[in-house]
Design a protein around this nucleic acid. Structure first.
Lengths: 330, 330
DNA sequence: TTGTAAGCGTTATCAA
DNA sequence: TTGATAACGCTTACAA
């Protein structure tokens, strides 16, 4: 175990006071260039690194951001958040922050986790995912003045806090136009029950694009909980109607995968487009709408650090555009 | 922002000294029951939480463990580590530790990250994944006396440090016996180049099970880098031989997925078994060998905290058994 | 059983 | 421009 190198070690080495070393690190401009160089040399030679715990006690800042990792769910949709997490960690590191993980079984316990993280670890900020109508988490954090960004719009109050999101409606609209261009007219949509912001958003892109093409989409729309089996069931329902669709767009790759089982067996085969461009979609050749998750994560970090570093404290937001990835199924 | 509650606040509230409050938290048995109850009441009432930074400065322990998150790779195999990460975070939380993430583009920078994490954040320990022959990371950590566990055997020196691993050979052996029981005799193996501990391990289970059944497996074996395209290529090669296999076992689901494209087109269809039981395998109905990732993560935390808490400092290790998940492809 | 004093490594304040 | 001093919240050693 190497000897501990503190600011005092560096100070002795460079024959200055501890305060001067601190200044070289935190306010180099107020130190004479000659002194600065000498101290910097000592820092490099000794491999000195400021101790965060001590620094944090003085400054009240930990340079730590927290993000929730979901309990292992459906591995398909889970991969979306995992990819986001990867990007977030990388972006945070580049900005000089470390990422701390926490889990929570429900919203109540998630808020309890904030409390713990904040008082025990002095977390600088949070990145929240999967916001929904009347989300109590954002209210709790906002009430306490805790800096945070959400990946997902605040579906109730657009300007309440900084957020980053992907324009789901634009994605499904593009998917719809892609199908229209290929001659499809009866295009269905498999989604989630009305009331989930994300689901409603994705559905609206489809219905608007349909109406823009002069087609009334009602009737080709089914909704359910997420899952492969559910997608299969809904697809079967849709195909049993009087005017079955020749193509369907799904709110997730899970639904699309289920739909695909049925769609492939149909004669003629029904085109299917999923959402999220998960690894599974790539593996089975499913056409899907891809979210720029890496960029979303980078923007989250950007927005959060802007608040933390006081760069600008506007409640900015970013809406990113998804892209259709055409494969074999449509 | 709520007022900061420190140990002094609690002490005032319970009309005791700060030291007594500290004792109630860290050594309750030396405090008179009546006093303890009164202090505990104050702690609860005020929602007091010990500040980790301050505590860490005194004790030198951060109650933080670090784990690397890979740069976004092939989403199929990446999911294995992601699932492990989920389990690790949950298990660590249950043991009173928080999980900190870091990234590193190569081994050299990973070691630099250790240095930073250790000196800046006083990390208590590391969980390493994907160990390989002559891994410099374990040597670096061991030389400095840093506590760590690996998920993956130390392929060179079995007793060097605590580790958890899954018995890959047992998994492929079970897969082989599964195929033998269904009448297959010419069973192939698609794996990675000799020299990777994990790959060699998985291959050996197959070849041993074949020999145990009185079949000489040489000839039905191909190796390559990991990837769907590679699996496709190898499978084509294997089917072009004089005595093509009627079934293949693959070292990963990626390889298996590629192999499956070719195998399904063959007449009669060739059985395929993958490894890792990724979400993709579940989605396409690929029979695969499943690793108990949640348990592996829990055991890693167990081993690491045993070292950290000084419960017992033996260099223990755990070898878990995988399980075959039969689906449509075999 | 409880309280007092010192110190962990850092930075903010203020004096030199 | 630099240095001395105090303080952040906690725990260990020791005294009461």
């Amino acid at each position: 175990m190497a000897e501990k190198v503190t600011i005092a070690t560096v100070a002795r080495h460079a024959r200055v006071s501890r305060q001067t070393v601190s200044n070289v690190i935190n306010a180099p401009h107020i130190v004479r260039e000659e002194t600065r160089a000498r101290v910097q040399e000592a820092i490099d030679a000794l491999g000195y690194r400021a101790n965060q715990a001590a620094r944090q006690m003085r400054t009240g800042r930990s340079r730590l951001i927290a993000v929730r990792i979901e309990p292992t769910r459906d591995g398909i949709n889970g991969s979306v958040l995992d990819r986001f997490l990867h990007g977030l960690t990388e972006a945070a590191e580049a900005a000089g922050y470390r990422t701390m993980l926490y889990t929570a079984a429900d919203v109540e316990r998630e808020i309890a986790a904030y409390d713990d993280l904040l008082s025990a670890y002095d977390l600088d900020g949070f990145v929240l995912t999967g916001t929904h109508h009347g989300d109590p988490r954002t209210a709790w954090l906002a009430a306490r003045g805790v800096p945070f960004v959400t990946f997902g719009r605040p579906w109730d109050t657009p300007e309440a806090h900084p957020w980053v999101d992907v324009d789901g409606a634009a994605g499904t609209a593009e998917a719809t136009r892609h199908l229209l261009a290929r001659g499809h007219r009866r295009i269905g949509f498999l989604g989630w029950p009305t009331g989930s912001g994300v689901g409603d958003d994705r559905r609206s892109g489809w219905s608007q694009a349909m109406r823009a093409a002069g087609i009334e989409p009602s009737g080709w729309h089914r909704e359910t909980e997420d899952g492969i089996a559910e997608g299969e069931r809904l697809m079967r329902e849709l195909l049993a109607t009087a005017e079955p669709p020749t193509a369907v767009i799904c709110a997730s790759d899970s639904l699309a995968l289920g739909a695909l089982q049925v769609a492939r067996a149909a004669d003629p085969a029904v085109a299917v487009i999923g959402f999220d461009d998960t690894p599974v979609a790539a593996a089975v050749g499913l056409t899907s709408v891809s979210q720029p998750l890496g960029e979303a994560a980078a923007r989250c970090v950007e927005l959060l650090t802007a608040v933390l570093d006081g760069t600008h404290r506007t409640t900015d937001h970013v809406l990113l555009q998804p892209a259709l990835v055409p494969r074999h199924t449509a």
